[in-house]
């Protein structure tokens, strides 16, 4: 695929930026028109969680895309997708804290301790915090080599996010299998790259 000129890149980025906002726009629209269904809380939790994992996998697919499609420009979208992943994950966490725990720290503490799937989900978000905060150019320059090292945290975050899904399997394995296969593919490509280098 062709490398984009800076003008094209600017336009493409604007398009991706807007596309990533569409799920949020839909959620707000559905909330305002009260069309989130009979159990709007559950619906909000599922929708924000679904978009978080989708964007997470897409973010992680960027660097293999360079190899598979020889498309160098793909990398220019990674930061935005990563930040959107963090954004939808934060929204997911905010809705759970507001509607399930009702900002009752005592209850939240019990839930975190007793329910491992909630704990790993929360841990994935915690790992995203330093990544999100150091995503700007200044931090990249300041951290130099350490920036890449720090951002290796996406891998445990991704595995924790998957565990968060898999641990909730109750009646259908579909999501757990789907994201599991995608994640294995993405990790396999990196593993191959690593092997070549050695």
């Amino acid at each position: 695929m062709a490398t984009l000129t800076s003008k094209q890149l600017y336009a493409a980025k604007a398009v991706v930026f807007v596309i990533c906002l569409l799920p949020l726009a839909y959620i707000i629209y559905a909330a305002l028109t009260q069309s989130l269904g009979t159990d709007p809380v559950k619906s909000l939790i599922h929708q924000t969680g679904d978009w978080a994992i989708r964007l997470f996998v897409l973010t992680m697919a960027i660097s293999p895309m360079r190899a598979w499609f020889a498309w160098g420009s793909a990398l220019r979208f990674r930061r935005m997708l990563g930040l959107y992943t963090w954004f939808y994950t934060s929204l997911h966490l905010f809705i759970v804290t507001t509607y399930i725990f009702a900002w009752d720290w005592q209850l939240a503490k019990i839930e975190l301790a007793e329910r491992p799937y909630i704990f790993v989900g929360f841990a994935a978000w915690v790992l995203m915090v330093p990544l999100g905060l150091t995503s700007n150019n200044r931090a990249v320059r300041a951290l130099r080599k350490n920036w890449a090292r720090l951002h290796m945290l996406v891998y445990p975050a991704l595995l924790l996010a998957w565990l968060h899904i898999a641990w909730q399997v109750r009646s259908s394995y579909f999501d757990a299998v789907l994201y599991g296969v995608l994640i294995i593919c993405l990790l396999f490509q990196r593993f191959q790259k690593l092997q070549k280098r050695l």
Partner: peptide, 22 residues
């Protein structure tokens, strides 16, 4: 409590985001 859900509270449906009827 259930391993997945605390059973101390429930959402009485239908609920809305402004009155979650927890």
């Amino acid at each position: 409590s259930h391993p997945r859900w605390s059973q101390a509270y429930e959402r009485r449906l239908p609920s809305s985001l402004l009155s979650p009827s927890r």
